[in-house]
Amino acid sequence: MSDDHDDSPIAARVRELEAILEEKGLLDAQELDRALEAWTHRASPANGFRVVARAWVDDGFRARLLQDANAALPEIGLSMGGGLQPQQLHVVENTERVHNVIVCTLCSCYPIALLGPSPTWYKSPAYRSKVVSHPREVLAQFGLTLPETTEIQVWDANAESRYLVLPRRPENTEHLTEDELTKMVTRNGLIGTAAV
């Protein structure tokens, strides 16, 4: 992995530990490159956008996705595999009545294979503590105000179970292609802190 010239104390300590591990033969630079390549390039929110767009245009896929997401993902060339342990993905569908939000109150469990590494706010104690007790207040901080009649369901992810929100398809998008629909989806929409 390429050297950097960050002179902060923590950067120096990380470099020092890496050097010790390399010297002991417990780590090699190429291994780090491969790990980064796999998780920061291959795993990106673009995968999640494709899942949503396909579910919007294909009712059969949507039904299979909601039933057993791990089994449905390979239909579009994606998978929940490749991680350090098996994870079951649960796709939760927003409706007129219910809006879903995901969190990991204990740490940072997240569907990384589909969305890439999570944003800092998702991992922050502020989000994790509050979205379970005051979800409307937290969503408002993201600029999302839902009608009082909409029920908010919060899903707490863990080591074995990950969640992905299937947002509602925006109105007047019947004329758009699947490819165009992928561009309407945002990462926050898949977490539930945005409508789409």
Partner: peptide, 30 residues
């Protein structure tokens, strides 16, 4: 921390990069 008070508002960083410094990427990969 689920349900606890006192952590302040949720702050979203717009256009946040995957890692804020190279050492974070190294820790992740390591």
């Amino acid at each position: 921390v689920g349900g606890q008070d006192g952590f302040g508002p949720v702050v979203e960083e717009l256009d946040e990069p995957t890692f804020h410094a190279d050492w974070e990427a190294h820790v992740f990969a390591m």
